[in-house]
Amino acid sequence: CHSECLGNCSQPDDPTKCVACRNFYLDGRCVETCPPPYYHFQDWRCVNFSFCQDLHHKCKNSRRQGCHQYVIHNNKCIPECPSGYTMNSSNLLCTPCLGPCPKVCHLLEGEKTIDSVTSAQELRGCTVINGSLIINIRGGNNLAAELEANLGLIEEISGYLKIRRSYALVSLSFFRKLRLIRGETLEIGNYSFYALDNQNLRQLWDWSKHNLTITQGKLFFHYNPKLCLSEIHKMEEVSGTKGRQERNDIALKTNGDQASCENELLKFSYIRTSFDKILLRWEPYWPPDFRDLLGFMLFYKEAPYQNVTEFDGQDACGSNSWTVVDIDPPLRSNDPKSQNHPGWLMRGLKPWTQYAIFVKTLVTFSDERRTYGAKSDIIYVQTDATNPSVPLDPISVSNSSSQIILKWKPPSDPNGNITHYLVFWERQAEDSELFELDYCLKGLKLPSRTWSPPFESEDSQKHNQSEYEDSAGECCSCPKTDSQILKELEESSFRKTFEDYLHNVVFVPRKT
């Protein structure tokens, strides 16, 4: 048989008469490798580009789960590009990614509803959504962080984005990388972005840091009482949809009607710091009717980097990364020049730590249904340095008659930039024990000054392991946590139920 035959053949030295091919099969003959313009397919066939392209389009058009959109890589027609490569849609070739590779997620039936953290986790790592997304989240724990972890990498949506009755959302900033909504599939009414009845939605994105392009379709905003109209108009300008909307697409009466839409800028007039305090004062603000001013709200939190936005980490279910302080308005003076500047002394802060701070007014709604208010920009203030805590785990070892090696770990709280350490030492008198000992005694162990690591005695271990207080009263049991108490109650309830079950099964009433 021919060298490319495997198993047997019907005619000697003829690659077209093989029972099976050793390498690849091409047009009725066995070959060692697939010549151009053919590609290896499933490690035994040679196919042309049209064959591989037909497989790709067949799966793409069917949208069946589990099928493969075949691509070409290293002269092979394979189910998908290997790690580190992405497909070129024009020629199906796998090309190296520039940075992290995109991950295209194809949605069944063309859309997916995100109504819980669990459903959001199914899209973790996706960068391109081939379909439409509907966000409908009523509640949950730590929602802002969970949504950002699972949806934060999405850069492109081919269909539309719909935010509907998501009472738990305060902001859409968890879509931190969303840059493009194509609108290839539109919501009824030709809408590519749809926001309806979101009672706590206050911000779409921080438009000073976020760009969003909507290729096709219109915007729809109705019944978002805490979303200011200025935020919607800003989205029109940034996304390129200005002029597409009709009169009733953006409701003037049901958007922002319960919001404090600040239209003035508060400026800080005085800032002073110490290692654990920050004193702030800002310019006074009074609405047209000074009785509408209820006070100020001061927001602050630790910020290692200057990239904080107002609604980071917030949701309507209680999660809030900001510390909020309510401040009463100052006494009002008739003389504008003698107006008191409101302020606040922030206490209990960490030394040498940068804080993000902003302040906003708290006002009631005027009778004319106009909203007044003022808010400052987010500023960054760093507390002063102070003395560091003591170095940890000092170790001293003498390696000769004239040297001592000293080692330690950095302090747990540096409280500033540590530039150097101060080492103090003092000579001590020799131990009298060394002169009084009889060095001729056998088995004498000389006193040693070398360091030995501390260890816990058996008594201390027994005390720590004991669940009861000892007789001397030195140790006591740790208080039980809520989960331990709940577990004990469940076990007790189970024992009672099981005992009742045994009584009912074992003891049967005697027939009379």
Rank of each mutant, 00 (worst) to 15 (best):
V104S: 07
C105K: 03
L107D: 07
L108N: 14
L108K: 04
L108C: 03
G110F: 08
G110S: 13
G110P: 02
K112L: 11
K112H: 15
T113L: 12
D115F: 05
V117G: 15
A120P: 02
E122Q: 03
G125W: 07
G125F: 03
C126T: 01
V128K: 10
S132M: 01
L133M: 07
I134G: 07
I135H: 00
N136W: 10
N136H: 11
I137T: 14
N141F: 06
N141E: 12
N142P: 06
L143V: 12
A144W: 04
L147W: 04
E148V: 07
A149D: 09
A149S: 05
N150I: 14
L151N: 00
L151K: 00
G152P: 00
L153R: 07
L153Q: 12
I154H: 00
I154L: 12
I157W: 01
L161T: 02
K162I: 06
K162Q: 15
I163Y: 00
I163Q: 00
S166T: 11
S166M: 11
A168L: 03
S173W: 11
F174T: 05
F175C: 02
L178Q: 00
R179G: 15
L180K: 07
L180H: 12
I181T: 01
I181A: 00
I181F: 00
R182I: 13
G183S: 03
E184R: 04
T185N: 07
T185C: 02
T185W: 05
L186G: 12
L186K: 07
E187A: 01
E187D: 14
E187W: 12
I188Y: 15
N190A: 09
N190T: 09
Y191I: 14
S192Y: 01
Y194G: 08
L196D: 04
D197L: 14
R202P: 02
Q203M: 11
Q203D: 13
L204K: 02
S208A: 13
S208M: 13
K209V: 11
K209A: 05
H210I: 14
L212P: 03
L212E: 00
L212C: 03
L212S: 02
T213D: 12
T213G: 09
I214N: 06
T215L: 04
T215H: 13
Q216E: 07
G217L: 01
K218Q: 04
L219T: 07
F220Y: 15
F221V: 10
H222L: 15
H222I: 03
Y223P: 00
C228L: 04
S230T: 04
E231G: 15
H233N: 05
K234N: 13
E236C: 14
E236V: 13
V238Y: 04
V238R: 11
V238K: 12
S239C: 11
S239F: 06
S239I: 15
T241V: 08
T241K: 13
R244Q: 11
Q245T: 10
Q245N: 14
E246G: 15
E246T: 05
E246C: 03
R247K: 10
N248Q: 03
N248V: 06
N248S: 10
N248P: 11
D249Q: 07
D249V: 12
I250H: 15
A251S: 08
L252I: 12
L252T: 07
K253R: 05
K253T: 08
K253G: 07
K253P: 06
K253L: 09
T254Y: 08
T254I: 09
D257V: 15
D257R: 05
D257Q: 02
Q258F: 12
A259W: 12
A259Q: 13
A259F: 10
A259H: 15
C261W: 04
E262N: 15
N263P: 09
E264F: 09
L265G: 05
L265M: 15
L265S: 12
L266H: 01
K267Q: 12
K267P: 06
S269A: 06
R272L: 03
T273H: 08
T273C: 13
K277A: 13
W282V: 04
E283N: 14
Y285E: 03
P287M: 10
P287W: 03
P288Q: 07
P288V: 09
D292I: 06
L294K: 13
L294R: 01
G295Q: 15
G295K: 14
L298F: 14
L298S: 01
L298C: 07
F299Q: 05
K301P: 00
K301H: 12
K301Y: 04
E302K: 10
E302C: 04
A303L: 05
P304V: 01
Y305G: 12
V308G: 14
T309M: 05
T309S: 14
F311L: 05
G313K: 15
D315G: 04
C317V: 10
C317G: 08
G318R: 02
S321K: 13
T323S: 08
T323M: 13
T323V: 15
V324S: 03
V324Y: 14
V325A: 15
I327C: 01
I327L: 12
D328E: 14
L331N: 06
R332P: 08
R332Y: 02
S333D: 08
S333L: 10
N334L: 10
N334Y: 09
N334P: 13
D335F: 08
K337P: 13
Q339N: 15
Q339I: 06
H341D: 07
H341Q: 11
H341S: 09
P342I: 08
G343M: 10
W344M: 02
L345M: 08
R347Q: 09
R347K: 14
G348P: 09
G348L: 08
L349N: 00
K350F: 03
P351C: 07
Q354S: 03
Q354T: 05
A356V: 02
V359S: 02
V359M: 03
V363P: 10
V363A: 15
E368D: 09
R369H: 03
R369P: 04
T371W: 09
Y372S: 05
A374W: 14
I379T: 06
V381P: 04
V381C: 02
V381R: 12
Q382V: 05
D384Q: 07
A385T: 14
T386F: 15
N387I: 10
N387D: 03
N387H: 14
P388I: 01
P388Y: 01
P391N: 01
P391T: 04
P391V: 03
P391Q: 01
L392D: 02
D393V: 04
I395S: 10
V397K: 08
S400L: 06
S402D: 09
S402Y: 10
Q403H: 07
I404L: 02
I404V: 07
I404S: 04
P411A: 14
